[in-house]
């Protein structure tokens, strides 16, 4: 009797998290299903790695004064950061489509939050693609670019963890930034600027720790190094403390961005209620 009751209650009120998990899984499946996209993304990945492997091999790395730094470290650094960037195509404009289509009132839907639904779907998509690219890099970087993995194998689980966190943070930044669409059709332009800021301040090609000090200080005040640098730094000859700092920064920015999302969501709902748009 009690079991039946439990089942009935479950069916009548499915847990909120179930919907979010379903959205996440849908995102994962979509990435796995979209083979043409994966193949063409892999092509970009290979081209980038080829170009920069030649650049890094001809770069006077000793001028950077980083003890033990070899071209292999730099190739792997790029392989990591590109996993994140190529794994997140169009992330900066996704939420904006709903606003642009005048469907803002959908943010009122309850009990599940539409924002979290979209984010779960995006996280599913990007985490799957980024991890697939990471798995691919484990095979192709040593084979095609003669760069053996510069870390011990057991550390791969930490790398995977930071990749997941990076994808989560990047999509959160993109989603919050895309809400600018409420003020007009600016999300595409904001997306361009945000992606370039991620490239430069996040350290897409070159680690932030190689930048002059004043730029480093500025960069670390933004969430961008937590998206790219925190992942790539695993492959550099740095201390465990530096890697741990990167990880802690990711946790900190995750907390800040989740709070920002909560506030932005509340504000948007208030906006809909007030204006009726």
């Amino acid at each position: 009797m009690s079991l039946e009751l439990t089942l009935c209650t479950k069916n009548a009120h499915p847990p909120l998290s179930k919907g979010y998990v379903a959205a996440f899984k849908m995102g994962c499946r979509q990435t796995l299903h979209d083979r043409v996209d994966f193949v063409s993304t892999t092509m970009i990945y290979l081209v980038l790695l080829y170009i920069f492997s030649t650049i890094f091999r001809h770069m006077p790395l000793h001028e950077l004064n980083v003890a033990g730094l070899r071209p292999e470290n730099m190739i792997w650094y790029l392989a990591m950061t590109e996993c994140i960037m190529l794994g997140s195509p169009g992330g900066y404009t996704f939420g904006a489509h709903i606003i642009a289509q005048g469907r803002l009132s959908e943010f009122l839907t309850r009990p599940n939050s539409l924002s979290i639904f979209i984010l779960c779907w995006l996280w599913g998509r990007t985490i799957t693609l980024s991890l697939l690219l990471f798995l691919l890099s484990l095979v192709i970087v040593p084979l095609l670019y003669q760069a053996p993995l510069p870390i011990e194998l057991w550390k791969i689980s930490f790398v995977v963890m930071t990749i997941v966190l990076s994808c989560v943070i990047l999509q959160l930044i993109g989603f919050i930034a895309s809400m600018v669409e409420i003020f007009g059709p600016f999300s595409t332009q904001v997306g361009w600027m945000m992606s370039k800021m991620t490239f430069v301040l996040g350290g897409l090609y070159f680690p932030v720790i190689f930048f002059p000090l004043h730029i480093q200080h500025f960069a670390f005040l933004t969430p961008f190094p937590s998206v790219l640098n925190a992942v790539g730094v695993h492959m550099l000859p740095v201390t465990d403390v530096t890697i741990l700092c990167g990880f802690l920064m990711q946790i900190l920015w995750l907390a800040i961005l989740l709070t920002a999302l909560y506030i932005a969501n509340k504000w948007m709902i208030r906006y809909v209620m007030k204006t009726g748009v």
Binding site: P60, K196, F199, V200, Y205, F210, P212, I215
Partner: peptide, 14 residues
């Protein structure tokens, strides 16, 4: 902004 990435890098290497 994107171009700055190279200027930053060339401020460290020759």
């Amino acid at each position: 902004l994107f171009f700055q990435m190279w200027t930053i890098m060339f401020s460290r290497i020759s």
